[in-house]
Amino acid sequence: MRTFALALVLVVAATMVIGIAGLPPHGDPDGPVHTHVGARYLEQGVAETGLRNLVTAVLLVYRGFDTFLEVVVIFTALVAVLALPSATRQPPPPRGEGAAASRREADDAVPVSPVVFLVVRLLAPFIAVFALASLYRGHVTPGGGFQSAAIIGAMMIALGLVFGREHAARLVPHGAKAWLQALGPLVFAAVAFVGWRLTGAFLGFPADEAAYALREAMVVVLEVAIAVGGAVILAQLFMALDAPS
């Protein structure tokens, strides 16, 4: 068995090494990555889209439909999780009611480790600033709505672990919760229709220089919606999975 495992590892490793050796050199201008649509994006991207960050240009303009559906996919994942019975139903009182109740009390009674409490409290403001910087700078440098969503969501989960789920739930206003969860798809659809009115194409962005402010506003609104909606969905997913079943 050991010999077989070793042989398997060697075969897989050799295959990977041979495969990596066959890749074009990093940054090779003749590599497949740079000879198909990539070259077009780099040469025409700024002129065609008017966006300075080509990643944003690819994400929102060249592959806008793909990004729209990604946002819908995240939302659908949340809907699917919330549709599971255990996510919303209160746990049924099991037999030996007292035993279960005391167990849950014991769970709640476990004090949060002072070390974790301190470190999460210490880091949370930095995480929040990082998320905002990532969102804000996403225009011109790597970053943007999805990254920011992941960072804010992780911060909310960490705070939820330390302060308890009830406190974390207060980060999302109860009345606005459903709207915030659907923020990504809703705003994406709204921006898409605005683009339709302006350019005649669904999800179109006005690319001319005169429409600079309008275009930037559309992108900012989209990115903020992706960040906030995504963060709320991530945190909600975690809370739902965390719920006693």
Binding site: V110, S113, V115, V116, V119, L122, L123
Partner: peptide, 20 residues
């Protein structure tokens, strides 16, 4: 600094949860 702060915290939380 971040990894030096967060790494041991994670290890501590894991070990504490295992103990509990």
């Amino acid at each position: 600094i971040l990894v030096v702060v967060s790494g041991p915290t994670t290890a501590h939380a894991l070990a504490r949860a295992a103990m509990r």
